[in-house]
Structure formats: structure tokens, C-alpha cells
Amino acid sequence: MNNLLTDIAGVRVGHAEDAKIASGVTAVVFDQPAVAAIDVRGGGPGTREDALLDLANTVERVDAIALSGGSAFGLETGGGVQAWLAEQGRGFRVREALIPIVPGAILFDLLNGGDKAWGRFAPYRDLGYAAAASAAASDFALGSVGAGFGATTATLKGGLGSASAVTSSGARVAAIIAVNAVGSVTVGDGPWFWAAPFEVTGEFGGRGLPNKFTEDMLRMRIKGGPAAAERENTTIGVVVTDATLTKPQAKRLAMIAHTGFARAIYPVHAPNDGDVLFAAATCEKPVEPLVGLTELGMVAANVVARAIARGVYSATALPFPGAQPAWKDRFG
């Protein structure tokens, strides 16, 4: 166990970034199609193929999931991932045709100081291809990489994080999250992460929580201040398990795991967030459908919270005037 999404056998992760535009993408690629569902909680989401994941619809398994910066421009990332999968002969078969199934979600990073004058076509399709081509079933970088490259939060540089755990029955569950929240991942102006109660072996600094919470710590901190109206935000991610789940059970897993957002971000699921969480199952181990699924969701929520904190903890500041400081710049 490396405390990463790739602790789930058959799951690969690849990143691609463009430092000039201060944005990037992450591809989660499954060696075999995985059962998948989606849960949307934010008020301003941007998604690709989300209707396909509706429980009433036919396709149950996906080949990959694309996470991207770039706001609506980043939806093209899925096309790049799809192109790479097509070259590998992957996809949903319709007679002689193969159609790679690649849902995705985007976050807003268009105002972070990067040069977004990219010409007629945005670079996200090519970045998606590069991310899929580089995807590996081993270690991958955290922080200001991939879809988290240009991410920010209310107070500190955002980033991409991951974490994993094992349930009492032996099922593995892991998450990868790109943290670009309208709210704050840390308490007040201090170094403490809201997710501190779920931290494992000092994975995001081991600072715990403050001895007491003051009124100032609990006041709202959001991008742009209390009058902010811009949709500059969104936290997106994927939780994956090796448990055997149906599509409705995967949906329930995504719903329970979304609790991890609330444990790690304050405030969360706002009108100007677009928070999205995918859940996928590689279906290697049976799970009891009531208590077993409940425990799986509980552990998944903890893993999501930890991944969010790790994304901010591991981030580095962008090299632009006025860029947000990284956690380690202030507290490390």
C-alpha cells in the first residue's frame, strides 16, 4: 500500500500539465472496464458523460475517467483520453465499432495567472492523450500536478491528493481528488487541516486540531471574500474500490464518500462550487450489501478527506505575482 489510488489493482493514473497556461489534467485508466457512478453536490458543475452514469441508463462500465482544469474548455480532456484508448482497441462494442467510455469533470482555474491565450483550440485534448499514455499502475506525484496544477482554495494553493485504506473485510478503497474549493481546507489562518481527525501517520503534517476553536476560526473564508459571485472553484475526484458493486451500489458509495468533502473543506457544496465525485468498482472482492457497503462508504469518506488534505499539503505555489502561498511556504 502506497497510500495512492493505484493501490487498487488494475488502476493506472497519469498526469499532464502546461506550465505556461498553469493548468493540467489527470487520467484514471482502468485495465478492465469498471462499474461506475457519479454524485454531484456543487451548484456549478461541469461534467462529461454524466447522463450515461445515470442508474436508468444502459452502460454500466467505463474505461477511464478524466479530471481536468480549464473550466468548460477542459471537457475536451476526455476526448484525448478516448483517443488513446481507441488506439489500444478499448471500448464499448457496437458490432464492429468500439467506443471508449470516458466520463469526466472539470474545475475552474482560468484566473490563476497563467496565459490562457491559447489560440483557436484549447490544449486539453492533447493533454488528455498525454496523461492517458503516461498512466502507470505505480507511484504518481501529488500537489501541483495534473488536474491540480492550477488549483486554488480560499486561503492556500490547492492541488491534487490521494489516499487509500482497507476495510475490516479486506476490501481496498482509494481516492484521488483535485482540490480547487471555494472554501478553506485549513482552520482559520493556522496550519491545522479540517481533516486532521482522519490523518494517518502524519501524511499531511501531523498538526492535529487547535486546542479550541475561536469565533474567527469558524467565520467564512471564501475566494474573493463574502461578496464573491465568480464560479472560480470546484473540487472533483474519483473513489475506487476492488469490491464487487452494482451500478446502484457504486452510486451509493459515491454519495457516502462525498461526506469526505464536508470533513475536509469549510464551507463546501456551495452555489459557486461544482463539486463532483465519481465512484468506480473493479469488482474483485464480494461485499455484504448492507453493513459491508456501509463500512465501505464510511472508509471511503475518510479516504476522500485525507486525499483533500494531502493535495493542499503537497502543493507548490504558482510562479506568478500575487499567487497564493502553498501550505509548506507558510507552515512547513
Rank of each mutant, 00 (worst) to 15 (best):
G225S: 10
P226L: 15
P226C: 11
P226K: 12
A227G: 13
A228Q: 13
A228N: 15
A228Y: 03
A229V: 14
A229K: 15
E230L: 14
R231T: 15
R231F: 15
R231I: 15
R231W: 11
R231K: 13
E232H: 10
N233I: 11
T234V: 12
T234Y: 05
T234W: 04
T235P: 05
T235R: 04
T235E: 02
T235G: 04
I236D: 08
I236P: 14
I236G: 12
I236E: 05
I236C: 13
G237K: 04
G237R: 07
V238W: 11
V239G: 07
V239L: 08
V239C: 11
V240Q: 06
V240M: 07
V240I: 09
T241R: 09
T241Y: 13
T241F: 06
D242Y: 09
D242L: 05
D242P: 10
A243Y: 08
A243N: 07
A243L: 08
A243P: 00
T244A: 15
L245S: 07
L245V: 06
L245M: 01
T246N: 10
T246F: 10
K247M: 03
P248V: 04
Q249V: 03
Q249S: 08
Q249E: 15
A250K: 09
M255H: 14
M255V: 13
I256W: 09
A257I: 06
A257T: 01
H258W: 00
T259A: 14
T259Q: 13
T259W: 00
F261V: 01
A262D: 03
A262E: 00
R263V: 01
R263M: 08
A264F: 02
A264Y: 06
A264Q: 04
I265C: 01
Y266D: 09
Y266H: 12
P267Y: 08
P267W: 08
V268T: 08
V268K: 02
V268A: 07
V268D: 03
V268C: 06
H269I: 02
H269V: 09
A270M: 13
A270Q: 14
P271G: 10
N272P: 01
N272G: 01
N272M: 10
D273I: 01
D273A: 00
D273N: 03
G274I: 07
G274H: 03
D275L: 03
V276L: 01
L277K: 05
F278H: 09
A279G: 03
A279Y: 09
A279R: 08
A279T: 05
A280Q: 01
A280L: 03
A280H: 05
A280Y: 02
A280K: 06
A281S: 15
